[in-house]
Amino acid sequence: VKKMAKAIMADPNKADEVYKKWADKGYTLTQMSNFLKSKTAGKYDRVYNGYVIHLD
């Protein structure tokens, strides 16, 4: 998940494709939050927020 999150950060155009894969795998927002937690607070906030919007 972190590898794909980094791919989104490097190229935001990949976001919809990645979010669809995550949704197809049934990842919940709680799971995504836990996967994307980082020592650098807020590092993956943009990715998480994008997934929230995708699921909505």
Score class of each variant (00 low, 15 high):
Val1Gly: 01
Val1Trp: 04
Lys2Pro: 02
Lys2Ile: 12
Lys2Asp: 04
Lys3Trp: 11
Lys3Gln: 13
Lys3Leu: 11
Met4Leu: 10
Met4Trp: 10
Ala5Phe: 05
Ala5His: 02
Lys6Val: 09
Ala7Met: 15
Ile8Glu: 02
Ile8His: 03
Ile8Ala: 08
Met9Ala: 03
Ala10Leu: 13
Ala10Asn: 12
Ala10Trp: 09
Pro12Met: 07
Asn13Ser: 15
Lys14His: 08
Lys14Asp: 02
Lys14Gly: 06
Ala15Asn: 02
Ala15Gln: 07
Ala15Lys: 07
Ala15Phe: 03
Asp16Thr: 15
Asp16Pro: 13
Asp16Ser: 11
Asp16Trp: 11
Glu17Phe: 10
Glu17Lys: 08
Glu17Met: 10
Val18Ile: 15
Tyr19Thr: 02
Lys21Gln: 15
Trp22Thr: 00
Trp22Asp: 00
Ala23Val: 07
Ala23Asn: 07
Ala23Phe: 08
Asp24Arg: 10
Asp24Met: 13
Asp24Gln: 13
Asp24Trp: 08
Lys25Thr: 11
Lys25Asn: 11
Lys25Glu: 13
Lys25His: 11
Gly26Met: 05
Gly26Tyr: 04
Tyr27Thr: 00
Tyr27Pro: 00
Thr28Ile: 03
Thr28Asp: 08
Thr28Leu: 03
Thr28His: 02
Thr28Arg: 03
Thr28Ala: 03
Leu29Thr: 10
Leu29Gly: 05
Leu29His: 05
Leu29Trp: 03
Thr30Ser: 13
Gln31Gly: 00
Met32Asp: 01
Ser33His: 12
Ser33Asp: 09
Asn34Ile: 14
Asn34Gln: 13
Asn34Val: 12
Phe35Leu: 12
Phe35Asp: 04
Leu36Ser: 02
Leu36Val: 01
Leu36Met: 02
Lys37Glu: 11
Lys37Gln: 12
Lys37Leu: 10
Thr40Asn: 09
Thr40Tyr: 11
Thr40Phe: 09
Thr40Ala: 09
Ala41Glu: 14
Ala41Lys: 14
Gly42Ser: 06
Gly42Asn: 09
Gly42Glu: 07
Gly42Thr: 06
Gly42Ile: 05
Lys43Asn: 05
Tyr44Ile: 03
Asp45Cys: 09
Asp45Asn: 08
Arg46Ala: 15
Arg46Ser: 15
Arg46His: 12
Val47Tyr: 05
Val47Glu: 03
Tyr48Gln: 04
Asn49Met: 15
Gly50Ile: 05
Tyr51Arg: 00
Tyr51Trp: 02
Tyr51Ser: 00
Tyr51Lys: 01
Val52Gly: 07
Val52Glu: 10
Val52Ile: 09
Ile53Trp: 10
His54Glu: 02
His54Asp: 01
Leu55Ser: 02
Asp56Met: 15
